[in-house]
Simulated assay, not measured.
Amino acid sequence: MTAFALSNRTDDFIPEVFRRLFQAPVLATPFAENEIRIDVRENDKQYLVSAEMPGIKKEDIRVSITGNLVSISAEVNKNQEEKEGNGNKVLVKETFHGSISRSFSLAHEVDRKGVEAKLKDGVLLLTLPKRDSDAGHLIPIQ
């Protein structure tokens, strides 16, 4: 083997080592797997909330409202039992198992009597009526 041939192999090896050192991790994602993503819309009478809850059963979702604070939580179980002896080995496992939660505040208190919650196609839909408030009522001065 000539010195030239050895030099070429080393030149190929060194850049590969550095490339692997500075490569982004395989599991890096822009959003955490255990994050509930929401959209909140408002009109004069109510708030409309859409929360992504893919793969979660309605029995595993909890919604609580205190004044203007809304909290959504759920138990997530996306793990599937692996059968032994099927000849496959796991290379990457990005599934999540555990609890997720999200809380947010609204500008107005919610009238809990009129709240509606539906789970449709992996999306939790909340209708949160605004509670009438006396805070904006002007008091005449005598």
Score class of each variant (00 low, 15 high):
M1Q: 07
M1F: 06
A3M: 07
A3V: 12
A5L: 05
L6D: 08
S7E: 06
E16C: 14
R20I: 06
L21R: 09
Q23W: 12
Q23V: 10
P30H: 04
F31P: 00
A32Y: 07
N34S: 07
E42F: 01
L48A: 13
V49E: 03
S50F: 14
E52V: 07
E52Y: 05
M53D: 04
I56G: 00
K57V: 11
D60G: 02
D60F: 02
I61R: 00
I61E: 00
V63G: 04
T66A: 14
G67R: 06
N68M: 01
A74V: 01
V76C: 01
N77Q: 02
E82M: 08
K83Q: 13
K83E: 10
E84M: 12
K89I: 15
K89H: 13
L91G: 09
L91S: 12
T95I: 04
H97E: 11
H97T: 15
I100P: 01
R102L: 06
L106H: 04
A107I: 13
V115M: 05
E116V: 14
A117Q: 07
K118T: 11
K118P: 00
G122F: 06
L125C: 05
L125W: 08
L126I: 01
T127Y: 05
L128N: 02
R131H: 08
R131D: 05
R131W: 02
D134I: 10
H137K: 15
H137N: 15
I139Q: 10
I141M: 10
